[in-house]
């Protein structure tokens, strides 16, 4: 499902290659697998998720997602792959001018689903994250935790085969975090590959699972 061989990534700063955010990463995640993604702030967790989300291509090495070599794929091949990936961004990335409902409906509309189906799925998803009565609210009218739940709903509404979550419990209380873990485990049980980046040690302790440990852009352990 996901396979990295000697992958490196450096961001460009002022047009020139900047410091390497990720170095020599080699690991793979089987279809239907679950991984915690752990590491200190700045270790490169978000950068790795960005790679897996096909938002950036590796500077070096080989990255395969859905058995497609991302480094070599044509640009036109990537959108279809992205539509099979759900991503919860650390900073949510909701569209500020769209209601919670329209934000959640967006991936379905981009995928060209019919409007009745869009409505049914988006409403069900928003109900699931406890925002049934806030569907018409703009992101700016929602609390941080509510925005995070909209972001989560948007990531899973299209039933992605690969679900990436970047610090998805950062703004949630313990009850909501548990509920989110239930959702992620359910998606995983239904066949989705799930990667969750987090600092939340308590959450990891309550839900032990295999983890990718990053430090300064390198993989410390894959257990």
């Amino acid at each position: 499902m996901v396979r990295l061989e000697g992958v490196a990534l450096h961001y460009l700063s002022a047009g020139r290659p900047g410091p390497e955010a990720l170095r020599d990463l080699s690991f793979s995640i089987p279809e239907g697998g679950f991984r915690w993604l752990l590491g200190a702030s700045g270790a490169g967790k978000s950068s790795l998720l960005r790679l897996l989300h096909l938002a950036v291509r590796p500077t070096r090495g080989r990255l395969a997602v859905f058995d497609t070599d991302v480094g070599r794929a044509r640009r036109a091949e990537l959108p279809a792959l992205r539509r099979r990936i759900g991503m919860v961004f650390q900073d949510f990335r909701l569209l500020p001018h769209l209601s919670a409902f329209d934000n959640v409906a967006l991936p379905l509309r981009i995928a060209g689903r019919t409007e009745p189906q869009v409505r049914a799925d988006a409403q069900e998803m928003l109900r699931w994250v406890g925002l049934a009565r806030r569907m018409a609210a703009l992101p700016s009218q929602l609390s941080g935790g509510e925005q995070q739940r909209v972001a989560i709903a948007r990531a899973v509404v299209g039933r992605p085969s690969l679900l990436l979550a970047d610090e998805p419990t950062g703004n949630l209380d313990d009850g909501q975090a548990e509920r989110l873990m239930l959702l992620l485990q359910e998606m995983n049980r239904l066949g989705a590959t799930v990667v969750v980046a987090t600092h939340n040690a308590a959450l990891v302790a309550r839900h032990p699972g295999p983890a990718l440990r990053l430090a300064e852009g390198r993989l410390l352990g894959d257990d």
């Binding site: 989300h53 640009r75 036109a76 959108p79 992205r82 990936i85 569209l95």
Partner: peptide, 12 residues
Amino acid sequence: AIEIVHGLGATD
């Protein structure tokens, strides 16, 4: 907004 929509799998 374009980057977000692009990230959600919108084609050019």
